[in-house]
């Protein structure tokens, strides 16, 4: 082992355990709990004998041919599923990686993302509820905190109310010419916009002037909502 290593990187063994627990979480979500089925799956996805290791390590227990996670196992599985799915969202929405690169990268990221980074990504993305495949993202502390306030902090422009202000965090239009057009018209990450009206088209006031756009485009502009700027007192 490298003694100079300041920060622990998960060893292959730990990674295998984490990976396996993550897979089990997904299977449990879908109602698959039979040991025979899951053993075959884990064997193929990771390595033979991994299930025995999980049971011996106290992560998983078995009753009547069905598997069940212990508290320790559940914590890790929850974190793995959450980090993996958040990573998928990040790679898809913000970094706009091609589809085939999403999963392999998310699989590696989930093991190195720390709690702080996990929560920062979650906040950046506006505490999303589901990954690109549609699986629900297990909520973390940051989501609970955000819920107490005003819902997600980063939200698409189309979800904002009249009079609300927000700072653009990122744009994710589906094709490049549109992205470029939005950017060159002043909708640049960092600039602050105010929603003037939402119907019949979304109208925003930007430092560059007033822009009107189809709600379809507003779905692709993500803003960090300014706290407290409510629709109540500014609604006319």
């Amino acid at each position: 082992m490298d003694v100079n290593k300041k920060y622990p990187i998960p060893s292959t063994e730990e990674e295998d355990v984490e990976q396996a627990l993550g897979i089990l979480w997904t299977q449990f979500e879908q109602g698959v709990i039979k040991k025979s089925e899951l053993e075959a799956l884990l064997q193929e996805a990771i390595r033979p004998g991994i299930l025995e290791d999980l049971i011996q390590g106290g992560f998983v227990s078995q009753t009547d041919g069905n598997l069940c996670m212990s508290g320790k196992g559940l914590t890790i599985a929850h974190d793995m599923a959450r980090r993996h799915r958040l990573a998928e969202r990040l790679l898809t929405d913000v970094l706009e990686l091609p589809r085939e690169q999403i999963d392999p990268n998310a699989c590696r990221l989930e093991h190195v993302i720390t709690r702080d980074v996990e929560n920062a990504i979650c906040t950046l993305l506006g505490h999303p509820q589901a990954c690109p495949h549609g699986f629900s993202i297990p909520p973390g502390e940051c989501c609970m905190k955000a819920l107490k306030h005003t819902g997600p902090i980063v939200a698409p422009l189309s979800s904002m109310l009249e009079g609300q202000e927000g700072q653009i965090v990122y744009l994710s239009p589906h094709n490049r010419p549109e992205l470029h057009r939005l950017l060159s018209m002043g909708l640049v990450p960092g600039s602050v916009v105010r929603v003037v009206q939402t119907s019949p088209a979304v109208v925003v006031s930007t430092p560059d002037g007033i822009l009107a756009m189809d709600p379809v485009l507003a779905d692709h502009i993500f803003l960090r909502r300014k706290n407290g700027a409510g629709a109540h007192h500014e609604k006319q």
Binding site: A201, G209, L211, A212, M213, D214, L217
Partner: peptide, 9 residues
């Protein structure tokens, strides 16, 4: 093309 237009004062 989706609607996107600048509104002059």
């Amino acid at each position: 093309a989706p609607f996107l237009m600048e509104i002059p004062p």
